[in-house]
Design a protein around this nucleic acid. Structure first.
Lengths: 144, 144
DNA sequence: AGTATACTCCGGTTCTCCACTGGGGTTTGC
DNA sequence: GCAAACCCCAGTGGAGAACCGGAGTATACT
């Protein structure tokens, strides 16, 4: 019922990378981690997962780092969360021994999951970036 | 992102109690547990929680047991899950040190949570009971 | 009254997973 | 060649889920 810190870290990292997609300049783990207060050795693992999922690319060696594999508006939050959280392949095994009540509950569980996925599916990285910009614009308005 | 076995157990127990609401006859923990393959000592704790939340009533002593506190169509799945899962009072403390990106993500997290709660809110115990009956009816149709 | 049957309360135990850390590597730019 | 980066894999600590046990208490039935 709760999205883990893992997914939040991954999203934060991708949000950091989003503005740099156009320039093609990579960002290093250390920079992202210090910017968003994420333990860097942990973020490293998450970025590795994102790379294997094809969401980011990495450049090795000195002056290396990470960059988005495709446009920020072509990556949905569902893409990120699903590959980090590692769901799908949720074939619950006890299908045979389940009572009819348990089956009905499983259906509702699926509906809940689907509702959550729909929200994530409809939101892209670019949406979040613009939302953040709007927030800050709002703050400035009130600051003046 | 996933509903725990805890919530499923609680729901199963309440589904067992639902048909007996009209008669006012209590069901014992053992009966419910064996019917739904739930460890009985564990179910005991869950029913205690449900009782404190005002969803079930208990009768102590011989011939005692549990019964629903109100009509099955006046209890939503949200009522059950929220009191079992123990959410609400989710005041995340790190509001001050959060980056603007983290704030935007928190908003989306809230939307996801809300979408899930809406599904649970719109579904009552009675809905599930009827859904189960419909399922079995369906099976019989094909059996004949 | 006595006993069996239930719930009630409180504590402990085991197990899994998340978040995080560490120690090696390998690749690349200068 | 050396430092800066990524890469891989193997842990550790704590929290919570799932579960078990025992002593206590209320009630029905005889």
């Amino acid at each position: 019922m709760d999205l883990s810190a893992k997914s939040e870290y991954a999203l934060l990292a991708l949000l950091e990378l989003s503005p740099h997609y156009a320039s093609g300049e990579p960002l290093q783990i250390r920079q992202i981690a210090s910017q968003q207060n994420i333990p860097d050795r942990y973020l490293e693992q998450l970025l590795a997962t994102l790379r294997r999922a094809g969401l980011v690319k990495s450049l090795r060696g000195a002056r290396g780092g990470y960059l988005l594999a495709r446009d920020p508006w072509k990556i949905t939050l569902y893409d990120v969360v699903s590959c980090i959280e590692g769901f799908e392949a949720q074939t619950d095994p006890a299908q045979g021994s389940a009572t009819p009540e348990a089956l009905v509950i499983q259906e509702v569980w699926g509906e809940v999951r689907q509702a959550a996925e729909d929200v994530l599916q409809k939101c892209t990285l670019q949406d979040l970036v613009e939302k953040r910009n709007a927030q800050q614009q709002h703050d400035i308005m009130y600051y003046i």
